[in-house]
Amino acid sequence: MSNSITTLFKIQYPIIQAGMIWNSGWRLASASSNSGILGLIGAGSMYPNVLRDHIQKCKKATDKPFGVNVPMLYPNIEEIMQIIVDEGVKIVFTSAGNPKSWTGWLKERGVTVVHVVSSVKFAMKAQEAGVDAVVAEGFEAGGHNGREESTTFTLIPMVREALEIPLIAAGGIATGQGMLAAMVLGADGVQVGSRFVASQESSAHQAFKDEVVKAKEGATQLTLKELAPVRLIKNKFYNDVAELYKSSPTVDDLKDLLGRARAKRGMFEGDLEEGELEIGQIAGLIHDIKPVAVIVEDMLAEYYRAKQQVNSFF
């Protein structure tokens, strides 16, 4: 399966394992890369020295390409970027910030840069900044999300119409059928997050993985839009947020309730009551926890079956 994405990243299949905070450590990234897709380490939950350790362990665990996802609101961003370059990582996905901030600096050092966006407007800004590809992420996605609330089904063809560089679809994709649908709509590849949370190699707490598997339709909701929109499984913390909204809270009120380390408490430490449990709407289609290699095999088999089924329609 060869196209602009497999060529850009030197991978076998046009699938990217999303770099998610508290879920995407070196084990997940290396297992993904070893399966023929692009693995990403999620730097958003790592101190600089921790990120360096994960990069070094990933290099020992795979000889295939892998990258690092960097939210640009990171407080130690300069140190993080320098570590990435020093360790010889050649692929960086940036998010949550202005792509002009680091794209030129990274590309001057031989790094392939991809930026994550949630709208046509920001996709165009990323292209103007010189990125090599764009991830367009729909409203269905887990974790922090765009304020536009554009669904993947509408976002991808609109971005494709405006964009000249390779396009990666994200948000609500966990199956081969979803992958085929995204590519029919104009994507050159897909980024998959939630499905890999429920993998054996994910660094998420087992209790969180089990909660993802238990999730049904309607189990998640986007909230905290005044801070940074985030899609969460509905638990006690989510209910506390919903109750606070009844009193027309200020931004400071929301910050006080959120506090610190909610995401770590939920996803990494397994506190299913007081933690942030970030996952996409597609969790309703995730029914088991599997090794990454099996997840990739399943997606590819589903993709080819769906393609044959579509061909039979005509």
Score class of each variant (00 low, 15 high):
Q191E: 08
Y238E: 01
I11S: 00
S35T: 07
S24T: 09
G218V: 00
D188K: 02
Q17I: 14
G275A: 09
K10Y: 07
E269G: 02
S24P: 04
Q127G: 06
F66R: 00
I91Q: 00
S30P: 14
K90T: 11
I15F: 13
L106K: 12
F196I: 06
A136M: 11
E137W: 01
L106H: 10
L285Y: 12
S247P: 06
D298S: 11
L40W: 01
T6L: 06
D86L: 02
L8I: 02
A129D: 05
R160Y: 12
F153H: 07
A219Q: 02
V92S: 11
G97C: 03
A301N: 13
I289W: 12
G259D: 03
A141T: 06
N23F: 08
A283T: 06
A306H: 03
G138Y: 05
S30F: 12
W22A: 00
Q82L: 03
F313D: 03
S247F: 05
N34G: 14
N23H: 10
I37H: 05
D253T: 15
G19H: 12
S32I: 07
V135W: 01
S33H: 12
K307C: 03
T250M: 11
A204V: 05
I282Y: 14
V241A: 06
G275K: 01
I15N: 01
F66I: 01
A18D: 08
D240T: 02
L106T: 09
E87S: 09
M46Q: 13
M81L: 15
S119T: 14
G193I: 04
Q200A: 06
I173A: 04
L300P: 06
G138S: 09
G218S: 05
F139D: 02
K125G: 14
N3C: 13
S202G: 08
N311L: 14
A123I: 00
L227P: 13
I37C: 13
A182N: 08
R109P: 07
T151S: 13
A162V: 10
K214H: 15
E269S: 09
G259E: 03
V116W: 00
A170T: 08
P99A: 10
M183D: 05
V135R: 02
V114N: 04
P229L: 05
N98E: 07
I279R: 05
G110N: 08
I77Q: 06
I289M: 11
L180M: 07
E297K: 15
V197Q: 07
S202P: 08
A169S: 14
V296I: 08
V50E: 15
D256R: 15
I16R: 06
F237I: 00
I21K: 10
R147W: 07
R109T: 08
S24R: 09
Q309L: 11
A181V: 05
L28Y: 06
L285P: 07
L227M: 15
D240I: 01
D252I: 05
S150N: 12
Q177M: 15
K90Q: 12
N239F: 13
V184Q: 04
R231V: 09
P166K: 03
M20H: 07
R260G: 08
G39H: 09
G146E: 02
P65Y: 02
